[in-house]
Design a protein around this nucleic acid. Structure first.
Lengths: 147, 147
DNA sequence: GCCAACATTAGAATGATTCTAAACTTAGAA
DNA sequence: TTCTAAGTTTAGAATCATTCTAATGTTGGC
């Protein structure tokens, strides 16, 4: 059973190899060495990494691994809902988010880092014309974060 | 002098060739045939077009024109502040927005169209930790629009 | 009318991502 | 065990939006 730990703006999943293997199997994915390794990083350690970040970590920690495998694995994890893929205007690269709770984002313009903002910290009220049926929304805050 | 006209969610600038030429000159850009032509479309007619959309229109209406010219021109217009460039998660392509007022966006998930939402139609209240200094924010609403 | 500065162009280059097709691994069945 | 079919990984090619290059074309003063 994964247990939880407090973090600044969201709760990061702490999972053992077994937990990860089980999650993958539950989602119909074989828990291969590469996949479990990538999951360790992307589900438990990384904070909004790009595919390139994941590849760099994997080469360091798992040995030689193809970029295609990184993309395949990230794609599969997104498909089964263990990960979310995001794109922001300030970069052409996708970033991957392991926070599965509904949340918004804060972009630190100084550091380039993305922080998660829980939905309950923002409240949006809208006054649109009748024709608009809103099904959801994304809010991106921008600014700086004091150390 | 450009005059104005009401539209659903924002006011579209109606400009003569002369107006456009003057705007360009005011911004320090030579009003070449290509630039004026592209401006006619992108400032007065188009609704959140991609570079490809602009190129297609230009080939139709101005004759053969290089894609590089489209990108150069759009880039210049963005640089001088006559146009804004936006990227959304649902597409890899940039789109160009001629609405210079501060505003948010509504993505119609059925049609793929983007609609502008004036700032005064949304109100955001936030309750973040002390370290966050918010300098601005972007809101993307998603849903459908009744015809 | 000339020339330097600015624009346009075709096509090559770039960079992120996806595809391809071959080689490898695995999970079961036999 | 051994076999096999399905699922994975891989290197490298392909793709797609965008940018760059460097050659050619145009323009606005003088």
């Amino acid at each position: 059973m994964p247990h939880k730990r407090r973090a600044k703006t969201h709760i990061k999943m702490q999972m053992s190899r077994q937990d990860i293997e089980q999650s993958l199997r539950d989602k119909g994915l074989q828990p291969t060495l590469q996949r479990v390794g990538i999951c360790q990083f992307v589900l438990c350690m990384a904070d909004h990494p790009t595919a390139e970040d994941v590849h760099a970590w994997a080469e360091q920690n798992l040995g030689k691994i193809s970029l295609a495998t990184i993309y395949n694995t990230l794609g599969s994890l997104v498909d089964v809902g263990l990960l979310r893929e995001l794109k922001f205007s300030h970069s052409e690269k996708s970033i991957y988010d392991n926070n599965l709770d509904e949340h918004h984002h804060f972009f630190d313009v100084k550091t380039g880092l993305i922080h998660d903002i829980p939905v309950q910290n923002l409240e949006l009220s809208m006054n649109l014309g009748k024709p608009f049926k809103v099904e959801g929304y994304e809010i991106l805050l921008k600014g700086t974060v004091k150390p």
